[in-house]
Write a protein that binds this DNA or RNA. Structure first.
Lengths: 241, 241
DNA sequence: CGACGCCTTGAACGATGTCAACGTGCGTGG
DNA sequence: CCACGCACGTTGACATCGTTCAAGGCGTCG
C-alpha cells in the first residue's frame, strides 16, 4: 500500500524533523533524509518566552536557528536608545548572518517562539558541501531583501495612517498567507511600542491611528491584541495601494 | 619569467574582462578564464547617460548586468508619485533580481554608468552549474540586506540633520572605501531631489540641512556637487554615531 | 540678454512627537 | 475577596520638526 511505503520512507527522517515546516518550505527542504539525520544530531530544540534575546546586535554568534513557530523581531538600536525594528521573521525562516562574525542586528522573540538551533560551524560546513542548501539560503535572503525594500518605502514616504494600515496588512497576510476572503481576524504579535518601533513612530501615534481606523470602521478592535478586518480591500487603500 | 607567465595567463581571459573590477571583487571572480570567455561571448557593454532607466519596477527583465563604473539608484514609487530610493549600487555590483520574473524596483543611472550585460537565461544556467557563482551572489545579497537594514534605521529613527550626515558619510565611504585620512573631498552622485528621495525628506529640507552643516563648519560646499569634509569624525557624530 | 534647470531661503502650516493624566486588565498580597 | 500596584494602552494639550508654497539666486546654454 502506498501509505505504508510513505511511512517507511518517513521513518528515515529524524523524528524531530517530521512535522517541521522547515523541511517543506524552509532551508531543510534542500536536504536528503540522511543529511537531515546527520544534521539533526547536532541540532537542539528550544522554546522561548516572549522577550527572550536570541542574538545580540554586536555580539558574535555561535549558532544558527530555524524558526519552527512564532514571530521573531530583528532590530537595531542607536547609542542613545532609539530603536528600529528592521524585520519580522516567521516560520520557517532561517535565523542568523552567514559568513560574518558580527550580526549587525539583534533578534528577540516577539511571541512565544520555538526554534531548532545548530552550531555555526556545522551549518557552514553543510553550506560549503551542498549547493542546494546555499541556493535555498539565497532565495530566502533575496525575499528578505525584497521585504526590506518594501518597508523602506513605508518608512520613508508613507504617512502615519498609511504606516499603521501597512503593518496590519503585513500581519494579516503573514498570518493567513493564502486567504481568499475579504475579512480576517488575527492577533497582533507585538505591543504598541514594538509596532511603533517597526513603523518609525511613537506609541501614541500608533494608538491614535488605530482608534481612527476603528472609528472609521476599517477595523474592529476586539481587545488590545485581537483585530478584525472586515474588508481587506479598504485596508489596502489606507495603506497607500 | 614570472611576468611572462602571468601575461600568457592573462591572455586567456577575454579582453573586455581584463581591466574589469568585477573579476576581482565582483561576481565574475568566481569564474575560471575559460568560463569567463564563454560568458563574455554573450555579454555586451553599454555606456549609459545619467537618467537612463535600466530596469522598470513592474516590468520583467531579460538581462542582468554588472556595474563597471558609475552609480545606479534603485527606487520604488507609489501610485500617487511619491518615490523612495531603496538602494544605491556601485561597481562592481551585480544588478538584477534572480529567480523572479518581476523586479520590484526600478533601476536608473544616477551618474554616467558603464555596464556589462548578459541575457537572463545565460546567467541562470551559469548559476545552476557553478556553486561558486551562487556563493558570490549570496554574499552580495547579504551585504545588500545589511545595508538596507542600516538604512531602515536611518529612515525610521534619525532626524533630518542626521539623515543628511548619514548620506554624506555613505557616499564618502563608498567613493574612498579604504580612506585613512580625516578629510575627504568628493562629488555627490545625485541631485538634491534624489538625495531627498533617498532620505525620505523634501528637497528643501536637504538643502537647509546642508547649509546648516556648512555654517557649522562640518562640511565645505565647493559647488552644488562637490563637497569637502574636513573631519570625518565630526560628520560621524552628526550622523548619530 | 533671457529662459531654464537647479538650488536656496523665508514664512506659515500641519503632522507627529512630547509630556502628562487617566483608563483598564491582571496578578499579588493582605 | 478586595485593594493595590503595575504593565499596557488611550487621550488631551501643547511643542517641534519637517513640509508646503512662494520668491529669489546662480550658473549654463541658446
Amino acid at each position: 500500500m502506498d501509505m505504508q511505503r510513505k511511512d517507511v520512507h518517513n521513518s528515515d527522517t529524524p523524528v524531530l524533523c517530521r512535522a517541521c515546516e522547515s523541511r517543506h518550505r524552509g532551508v531543510c527542504g534542500a536536504l536528503l533524509p540522511e543529511q537531515l539525520l546527520q544534521l539533526s544530531k547536532h541540532s537542539s530544540r528550544r522554546e522561548l518566552e516572549p522577550g527572550t534575546e536570541l542574538i545580540g546586535e554586536s555580539t558574535t554568534t555561535t549558532s544558527y536557528s530555524n524558526i519552527i513557530s512564532g514571530v521573531v523581531k530583528l532590530s537595531k538600536m542607536m547609542a542613545d536608545g532609539r530603536q528600529q525594528i528592521v524585520g519580522l521573521q516567521f516560520a520557517p525562516d532561517f535565523l542568523g548572518r552567514p559568513f560574518r562574525a558580527e550580526n549587525g542586528v539583534s533578534a528577540e522573540a516577539a511571541t512565544g517562539v520555538k526554534v531548532c538551533s545548530f552550531p555555526k560551524h556545522v551549518i557552514e560546513r553543510f553550506i560549503g558541501d551542498m549547493p542546494e542548501l546555499e541556493h535555498k539560503l539565497l532565495e530566502q535572503t533575496l525575499a528578505e531583501l525584497d521585504e526590506a525594500r518594501d518597508w523602506m518605502l513605508t518608512l520613508g514616504r508613507k504617512t502615519a495612517g498609511e504606516k499603521v494600515a501597512s503593518f496590519l496588512l503585513l500581519i494579516a497576510t503573514h498570518a493567513f498567507p493564502d486567504n481568499e476572503e475579504d475579512s480576517v481576524t488575527f492577533e497582533l504579535p507585538m505591543s504598541r511600542v514594538d509596532i511603533a518601533d517597526f513603523l518609525g513612530l511613537t506609541m501614541e501615534t500608533v494608538s491614535r491611528q488605530l482608534t481612527k481606523m476603528r472609528k472609521d470602521g476599517v477595523i474592529h478592535i476586539v481587545n488590545n491584541r485581537q483585530v478584525e478586518v472586515p474588508d481587506l480591500g479598504r485596508l489596502s487603500e489606507r495603506a497607500g495601494f
